[in-house]
Design a protein around this nucleic acid. Sequence first.
DNA 1: GATCCGTGGCC
DNA 2: TGGCCAAGGAT
Length: 366
Amino acid sequence: MNFPSLNNIEKVNTAQFQRDLLNWYEEEKRDLPWRKDQDPYKIWVSEIMLQQTRVDTVIPYFERFIDQFPTIETLAEAEEEAVLKAWEGLGYYSRVRNLQAAVREVHEQYGGQVPNTKEEISSLKGVGPYTSGAILSIAYGIAEPAVDGNVMRVISRILSIWEDIAKASSRKVFEEAIRQMISKEDPSSFNQALMELGALICTPTSPSCLLCPVREHCGAFHEGAVLELPVKTKKKNMRHVHLAAAVLTTEKDEVIIQKRPESGLLANLWEFPNTELSGMGNPKVELELFLKNEYGLDVSLEPESFAKIQHVFSHLTWDIDVYKGSIPADRPQKERSLLVQAGEVEEYAFSVSHQKIWKKARGGKK
DNA sequence: GATCCGTGGCC
DNA sequence: TGGCCAAGGAT
């Protein structure tokens, strides 16, 4: 393949670029928990957690997750409920369900050893082109590109590449650049150094070019185009959904919770009974109708909602009116729902929006 | 290729 | 305060 956008790559002194980058990394790299050893499993877990998620957010989750599931075998044999609870609040929950499915495959098909070929590792659920390259290079020292958002930003500036990094097709341009630039002696440090540089120096809006160890190699710096790069088109048609939710309590202080469908948004997480509103009727009436139809409950909800919660996702917004109601203790069972003691609600994995609901329900009641 | 899939921090 | 952003992958 020919890559016209890489016309500047021959201007870079690759050996010197590698030295400048790796020397800086050796000096400045952060002391992160997944850098304590090269255990492929831990590298893998960290890479999944770090997808679209900040390092500072990931650190405590990683520590707890590895404490609880220290090996392939422990995660393979864990209950999904426990795994989701460990991931609660991190978002993109399909990541951890795919991770556990993939770990189980490694446990059963690979004797518990994370595979070290591109083909095998890429076949695992949740392992795409970035993550496969990251594990191969960081855990196994194999010279494969690991092109994430940081790398595209850094390399677009170094090589003055004006491809739109929002397009999936652009990634291969940067992978080819990395194949030509990567250190064959230390691909692990090389890939991590590019990401570290992107996180600490070559940041999106206010890069610290005067502190940059590879400034002299940077096309955008010499052209005064640092703030123009990378090119990244943005699109975001935010959808709004109006919901009504019910916190239903028995005289024994039990509460109804239900488990979300096994695919789609917040799959398999727990939540309070709720329904999407038409936008035309009365929320309370629509919610009572839902509870009658789905739970067989004749609930008289409190007349006014006790909380209105807005929750913003990456691609949609929930506006939730939350009502309280009392129910008899002997209500009939419904599929994927439970009646649990109020004191045990927090043992279940909830999305943040429904954690907000619970917090408000208890805060205002006690 | 476009859309879906979470969350919290930042300015 | 609200839009933008962060170590992507699946469909």
